[in-house]
């Protein structure tokens, strides 16, 4: 399902990028202004937690020139042989705003059981000093609720191919949206450590651990629904790009 979705999105992205007319081929011989596409499967993993296995993914497709273009991001979880628990898709216009960062604007649509939300998104994605890959976003939902998330990753090279990657993601909500179980304040945190082996730059299996916790009102909502507020898991997966 994911694959089909991304293929669709990919076509859409290319179309959108071309439609923007971002590229004028000043010289057929030079490739300095061409559109590049990159499909990044950052994580595609099985999370083994409390007796159940969950499939989790995080991917991004870029279709862009050096300066601007489109991005499609998708992430989510589904139970093995079960329904999708949560999925988040973003279609964004991105534009280089500094040497290392792109500003991104667009929409996010969450598909999950129960009520869903659509959001306007504004964010920054890039490489922060000291080699932190950062993705920070501000969301405004169609119900008027504002939330923010920041995700950071760091690569620690044990050898040229064996890389330990700690990562963290924090989500903050500025108001309650009880219907979807989000309470104001720090709503959730996710921390992970993954050890990957770069068979090639483009294909990297990994193992790791991941820990998620919800806080404050969000945790209260979860408890009311009878859900866990803290989940630890052992993960095994692959990342790839092409």
């Amino acid at each position: 399902m994911t694959v089909k979705k991304t293929a669709c999105a990919s076509a859409l992205l290319l179309g959108a990028t071309l439609a923007l007319g971002v590229s004028s081929f000043a010289s057929a011989e030079m490739k300095d202004d061409s559109i590049m596409t990159k499909f990044m499967l950052d994580r595609f993993e099985t999370r083994h937690q409390d007796g159940e296995d969950v499939l989790s993914w995080e991917a991004q497709i870029n279709a862009r020139t050096d300066y601007q273009g489109m991005a499609f991001k998708t992430s989510g979880e589904r139970l093995n042989n079960g329904p999708t628990e949560s999925a988040e898709h973003q279609l964004l216009y991105q534009r280089l705003v500094s040497e290392f960062f792109d500003a991104q604007f667009g929409i996010r649509y969450d598909s999950q059981p129960g009520p869903s939300r659509t959001y306007a998104v504004a964010g920054l994605q890039g490489l922060a000093p000291y080699w932190f890959e950062v993705d920070a976003n501000l969301f405004l939902s169609n119900k008027g609720d504002v939330s923010a998330s920041i995700e950071a990753e760091y690569d620690l090279l044990l050898t040229q191919r064996l890389v330990l990657q700690p990562s963290a993601e924090l989500t903050v909500a500025f108001s309650d949206d009880e219907e979807i179980g989000v309470g104001s304040g720090l709503s959730s945190a996710e921390v992970g450590v993954r050890l990957r082996y770069e068979i090639s730059r483009k294909f990297t299996p990994y193992v790791g651990v991941n820990w998620e916790k919800s806080f404050g009102n969000t945790a209260d909502f979860a408890r009311e629904e009878g859900e866990d507020t803290e989940v630890g898991s052992v993960v095994i997966g692959v990342s790839a790009w092409f």
């Binding site: 590049m36 090279l157 044990l158 050898t159 040229q160 191919r161 730059r201 790009w241």
Partner: peptide
């Protein structure tokens, strides 16, 4: 090669500084 460099500029650098 050009596509690889554009997608990941350190694609060909296998002498990066490690923890060691």
């Amino acid at each position: 090669i050009f596509a690889n460099l554009k997608a990941q500029s350190d694609y060909y650098n296998y002498s990066q500084q490690t923890v060691g």
